[in-house]
Structures are given as C-alpha cells and as structure tokens.
Simulated assay, not measured.
Amino acid sequence: MTIGPRKLGPYWLIGATTFSRIGTLAYTVVMTWAVSKAGGNNSVGWVNAAAGFTIVLVGISAAFWLDKFDKRTLLLLLDAAAAVVCLTAAAVLLLVPMSSVVFTGVVVAVVTSAVASLYSPASRALIPSMVPAEGLERYNSVYTGFSETSRAAGPGLGALLLAVGGSEAFPLSLIINSISFIISFLLTLPLPADPPRQANEHKQKKRTFCQSVRVITKHAILRGEVLGALSINFLLPSNTFILLNRIAETGAKASMFGLANFFEAAGAVTAALTAAIIAVQLRRIRASQLMAPIALALLLCLTAGIWATIISLTIVTALVTVYNIILFSQLQREIPREKIGRVIAVVTTSSAAVMPLGNLVFSKLSTTIPTHMLIWATTITLLVTGLAITIGNRKRGGSV
C-alpha cells in the first residue's frame, strides 16, 4: 500500500507513540538497574508497585472524563508534562548532592505511568477521527508493528546507555526519555483536533466506570471479544514461567531467555506486518476465533526441547498480536465517538489489572505443579473460554 501525502497525517501518531515508547523502555531498563543498585530488589518492587497502582487508579478515573476533552490537546499536554518531569528529575540527580535514586525512580514511575495510562486510550480513541472505518485494520496493524519494534529497540537502547553511561546512566536515561517525549510532542502537533462531541440530553447524565463497562456488555459481540482479551491477559504470564521452567529443566543457558524474548518480539512484528497486508480478510473474522489456535499453539510446549518452547511461544505472541489488532479495530468501529475514549480506558485498565493477578497465580502454580500440567491448565482454560464466547456470540441482539 502506497501512502500518499494526504494519507500521511494519521501516521504522525504512530511515530509519536513509537519514539515515546522507545525512550520509556530504555529508561525503564536503566532505572531498574540503578534502583536495584541503590536500594536492592525490594526497592525495585516498590517502584513497580507504585507504577502499577497508578496505572489502575488513573485508568479508572479516565472512564469518567476522557471524552470531555480534545484528544490531540490531551496527548500534547501528556507529552509536555512527562518531558518536564524527566528533565527536572535528571537535573536533580546531576546537581543535587546525595539525591535519592529510589525516590526519584518512584516519582518518575508515578508520572510516566499516569501518562501511559491516559495516552493509550486517548491515542486509540483519536484514530477513528483520522482513519476511515474500512482502513482501521491496516492502520492498527502498522501501529502495532511499530509498537512491537519499539519493544525490542527500547531495551537495546537502555543496555547501550548502561554500557556507555557508567554512573551517569540514570540521569542520562531521563534526558533521553525527555527527548523522546519532546519528539512525540512535535509529531503530534500536525494531527487534527478531535473536539468532544455533545451527547443528547439522555446521554448527558453522569457516567461512571460501571456505566462505561455497560457499553461493552450490552453489545452482543464486543462483550465476548473483550472477555477473551481479558482472559488472554490473565493467562499470558504463564508463558514466562513455562519458559523459565523449560530453561531450568533442559539446562539451557540463561541467554536463551533473552533470545526467546527477541523471537517473541520478532513474531509480534511479523504478525502485525502480515495483518497489514491481509487487513481486508481480518474484517471477516472475530478476535475470539483466535483463542483456539492460541491454545493449540501452546501445546507445542509439551515437547520438552527448549527450541520447541520458543517456537510455540513465538506463535502464541503472533496470534495474540493479531487478536489485539482485530479487537481495537472493532472497538473503534462499533463504539460511538462520544463514548470511545472512556470505553477504551476501561479495556486497557482492566487488562493492566488482570496481568499482575495472572503473574501471582502462575508464579505459584509454576512451583507447585509440573510444567506439562501448567501448559494443560492454560490451554484448557483458553479453549473453554473461547467455546463459551463462541456460544454467547450466537445470541443476537444488543447494541451499543
């Protein structure tokens, strides 16, 4: 597909999200190392807990007000705020003797997590105002492809900063992160404004988080698709523990863990690029129809070899990537514009909330049951959930 000058506008948003994501991931790598050195792994846990709590809290609040503001203006304000905070934190670390690395990490984690919690639904909600309905799958495929590329590039940049920055790596990573937000700000400027839409008198009543949830649950198809996404996000952490167990059982080198993550990122990018090519065909299927293939791909992990496990998890990651592309395209197409920001905030916040729960559950299971039982438990849960959604989707009726 050739992108002409008139069609380039929406792609500035992809550039903005890619640069800010690379900077944030690079900073996260360096911050984790610096906080661990300064305060131990317990301090890293506190920083991550502060970030997770902020994401959920701010995400819930977004369900009340996100659609009341111009999305482009909100994105600009978020980039500007994050850039200022990161630059200020870097200046404090460089200029103030004995400044606390751990405290700085917590403050920046809270701010950047709040920004991320708002940026994701706001940017996703802005897309339908720039991209026609028939082009959503292709656009979201490119969006996801660049996002997954940044997932690999960001940690690589962070490792480079640790290698060359020495004792100044932490403030340097903050400066790099700030620059990435400034670039994101500049790339967001050409985007069209998306002023809030006035609802009719009946719709002007106060909306709560639960009322935003009802927008999804009343939709005959989307409720199943979102339920499937939440189930996958809860079950997905099992992949990490399956991989760790296989590495221990086979005596593979620790570097295989990093290699597996690289293959998974490559699988996600490949899936996104493929989805962009077959975007027309993607509109004919529902995201939940991929739950059975995801479950079956996971069964390859039953082969005890480490490479079979890596290949299996790469396929799973690729299929989950396509699932997300289809899901967000459906949300952007089906949800009315005056509600879309809050609804996407509900989806992204719920996903952020269930993943830590999945980590807790599967970290415990991975030490109490054999690896093959962990694989079967995840697979069967995926299949049962997918079957339940398929049966539910056969019941017609309901609207947004």
Score class of each variant (00 low, 15 high):
N233E: 03
G397D: 09
I310R: 08
H202T: 11
A318S: 14
V131S: 10
T321Q: 15
Q281W: 13
K68F: 08
K206V: 05
D79W: 09
I14N: 08
Y11H: 14
K37S: 13
A63V: 11
L331Y: 01
R246I: 06
S20Y: 13
S120K: 08
P195E: 10
V101P: 10
V316W: 00
V115T: 14
E225I: 00
A114E: 08
T368A: 15
R197K: 15
T317E: 14
L259S: 05
K339L: 14
N42Q: 13
N239Y: 03
G135S: 06
S36A: 14
A254P: 00
T321S: 15
R197D: 07
S36E: 14
S329D: 05
I310M: 14
L87F: 15
A353I: 05
G15A: 06
G358M: 11
Y27R: 12
T321M: 11
A116I: 04
V44F: 09
L360A: 14
M98N: 15
F53M: 15
T321F: 07
L227Y: 00
K206E: 00
N233D: 02
I182D: 03
S150V: 04
G341L: 13
T112I: 12
A62S: 14
T54C: 07
L296H: 00
T73R: 13
A80L: 14
A81V: 13
F262W: 04
I369W: 08
A116Y: 09
Q211V: 01
A81R: 03
Q289K: 00
T368Q: 13
L78E: 07
I369R: 11
G341H: 13
A81S: 15
K218Q: 11
I60Y: 09
E148T: 09
G398T: 06
A352T: 09
A89D: 04
F185C: 07
G386I: 01
A83L: 08
F257D: 05
L75S: 04
V226Q: 00
A279M: 03
C86Y: 12
I344Q: 03
S36K: 14
I335T: 10
I221Q: 04
E137I: 07
K253F: 04
P370Q: 08
G398C: 02
M98I: 02
E264L: 10
G251K: 01
T378W: 02
R396D: 09
R207F: 02
L235H: 02
E249N: 05
A50N: 08
R72W: 04
R138A: 09
G158N: 10
A116M: 10
L25Y: 15
A292M: 02
V29M: 06
L74V: 13
